[in-house]
């Protein structure tokens, strides 16, 4: 979305290999460690098992959505519809539950529904060749609208307490929520696929130059199509999680979450133009935003300041890597006469 796309000079910089953590990712990871240290020392109540639990459980939906979002942004596309898919799935989940179906049946159905919702984005983007920004703004409105069509003014809240409170369980005295474990496993799977398989590497190649990727034999359209399906399926998981965690299925569930997810992914060093970025950086971005929010809330920083800070960090996330790139280019130029 920029008139003049400034691409990094060397292609090898863009290959997403773990060994080549670029300086921005390192900076973010250091920022996470620093913020933990500073918050633990200065904010009362931050470093405690209970607060760890609060912090981590709020990260689950954003972390989940950030995984496929990273892959999609790496290919130079975007998916703004994820939170609406989650809301839509939440409502369908609620109405199926209200109709008396069992969870064993509802959960797979909902994941399929999410995948189909994602496939609609995928067809429009990869088959018809429409810009994903416009397509997913459209489906953002469409799926949120369908969520309200499904449940209307109703909220389904008749979920058994055993399940809703079971989701809050912690690992022993550590305060770490049990359900972060499957999320971490999923993150590892995404990380391995992205960084250690040909498929993963092809994503950055697509984002860097679609034409070159096509010449190299990568099936660009097919790849993007599958990414949108994965994104829809993961969004469905978030919809299910949201419904059960809050014990309430309603039309406005997860509204606006897409902005937090994209903010975290970009803060994690993924270029909005595609082609560069890696998963450890993104996870650090998600965690950093979560820690800052939690610690500043505990320190009684008002909501308006938090809002400004989120916006500021987002801008910093795109300005800073550019500044780093410039300084590198400058130093490279000066060293090679």
């Amino acid at each position: 979305m920029l008139a003049e796309t400034t691409r990094p000079a060397a292609v090898r910089d863009t290959a997403p290999r773990l060994g080549f953590l670029r300086s921005w990712d390192t900076a973010i990871i250091i920022a996470v460690l620093l913020s933990i240290a500073v918050a633990s020392a200065t904010v009362t109540g931050f470093a405690s098992p209970r607060n760890t639990g609060f912090l981590l459980i709020d990260l689950i939906p954003i972390l989940l959505l950030a995984l496929p979002m990273t892959l999609i942004i790496l290919t130079g596309e975007i998916d703004l519809s994820v939170a609406s898919v989650a809301g839509f799935v939440s409502c369908v989940f609620g109405s199926l539950w209200g109709a008396g179906l069992s969870l064993e049946l509802i959960i797979p159905l909902c994941i399929v529904l999410g995948a189909v919702s994602g496939a609609v984005n995928g067809v429009l983007v990869s088959v018809l060749g429409l810009p994903s920004l416009a397509v997913t703004i459209g489906t953002l409105a469409l799926y949120r609208g369908l969520a309200f069509v499904v449940l209307g003014d109703q909220a389904v809240t008749s979920f058994p307490r055993a399940i809703t409170s079971g989701l809050q369980a912690k690992i022993g005295a550590s305060g770490i929520p049990v359900w972060i474990i499957p999320v971490v496993i999923l993150a590892i799977i995404f990380g391995v696929v992205l960084h250690f398989t040909g498929f993963g590497r092809s994503l950055s190649a697509i984002g860097y130059s679609e034409e070159a990727a096509r010449f190299a034999g990568i099936r660009v359209a097919q790849t993007k199509f599958w990414l949108f399906i994965i994104s829809g399926a993961v969004a469905a998981l978030v919809g299910i999680w949201w419904t059960l965690r809050y014990g309430s299925a309603r039309g406005d569930n997860a509204t606006g979450l897409e902005l937090s997810v994209i903010a975290a992914v970009l803060l994690g060093g993924v270029s909005i133009f595609g082609g560069k970025g890696n998963l450890p950086g993104v996870i650090a971005g998600v965690v950093l935003l979560g820690i800052l929010r939690n610690a500043l809330q505990l320190a009684r920083v008002p909501e308006d300041t938090l809002s400004m800070l989120t916006g500021g960090l987002l801008i910093l996330a795109v300005v800073a890597p550019n500044a780093i790139a410039w300084s590198r280019t400058l130093s490279r130029r000066s060293s090679t006469p």
Partner: peptide
Amino acid sequence: ARRATPIVVALVTGLSLALTACGGTTVNSG
């Protein structure tokens, strides 16, 4: 109440119990 959707409940509570059994200060929201 709904018939007990046994697998899911067992999974949720089982995993929770297994992991919480070893610790003391778990906050049991129920």
